[in-house]
Simulated scan of single mutants.
Amino acid sequence: MYLTLLTLHSFMRWVVLAGLLLGLFRAYRGWLGGHTFSPLDNTTRHTAATLAHVQLLLGFGLYAVSPVVGTFHLRDAEHTPGTLFFGLLHALLMVTAIVVLTVGSALAKRRTDDLARFRTMALWFTAALLLMLLAVPWPFSPLASRPYFRF
Rank of each mutant, 00 (worst) to 15 (best):
R146C: 03
W14L: 01
M121A: 11
V100Q: 02
L8H: 00
L62E: 07
I98L: 02
P139N: 10
A49D: 12
T126A: 12
G87H: 02
L22H: 01
L84R: 09
S66N: 10
P147E: 12
L24S: 06
Y63A: 13
D114F: 01
G82F: 05
L123T: 15
A27S: 10
T47M: 15
A49Q: 13
V136E: 13
L8D: 06
A48L: 03
L17S: 07
G33L: 03
R146Y: 12
V103W: 06
K109C: 02
T83D: 11
R13F: 04
M12C: 08
D114M: 01
S141V: 08
D113V: 09
H90Y: 05
G34R: 01
D41I: 04
P39I: 06
G104H: 05
M121Y: 07
F125N: 13
P81L: 11
L40E: 09
H9G: 07
L5D: 10
N42S: 14
V15Y: 03
P81Y: 09
R110I: 06
T120G: 14
F37M: 01
F37H: 10
R110F: 02
L131W: 04
R117A: 05
M94F: 01
A127H: 00
T120V: 04
W14S: 06
I98P: 00
P139Y: 02
L6I: 08
L51E: 03
L62G: 14
L107G: 05
H79D: 13
L5N: 08
V99M: 00
G104R: 00
L58Y: 06
V100E: 03
A64S: 10
A48Q: 04
L93M: 11
L57E: 00
R117G: 05
A108W: 06
G104S: 05
W124Y: 14
D76G: 05
A108V: 06
T96C: 02
T126D: 07
L57P: 08
R150D: 09
H53P: 03
M132I: 12
Y28M: 08
W31C: 01
L129F: 14
T102P: 04
R119W: 04
L32K: 12
L22A: 14
F149R: 09
H9N: 11
V68D: 13
G30E: 00
T4C: 04
A144T: 02
Q55M: 14
F125Q: 14
H90C: 01
L58C: 10
V99C: 02
W138P: 10
L57F: 15
R111E: 14
V99R: 00
H9E: 09
T47N: 15
G87I: 04
S38H: 09
L32D: 03
F37P: 01
T80F: 11
T47F: 15
L21S: 00
A52L: 11
G19C: 08
T126Y: 09
F151V: 12
P139D: 12
F125T: 13
G59C: 08
V69Y: 01
V103P: 02
T120R: 08
F37C: 05
T50W: 13
P142C: 06
M94W: 01
T44P: 01
L32F: 08
L51S: 02
D41M: 03
S10P: 04
D41S: 09
L51D: 04
A144F: 05
N42L: 11
T36D: 14
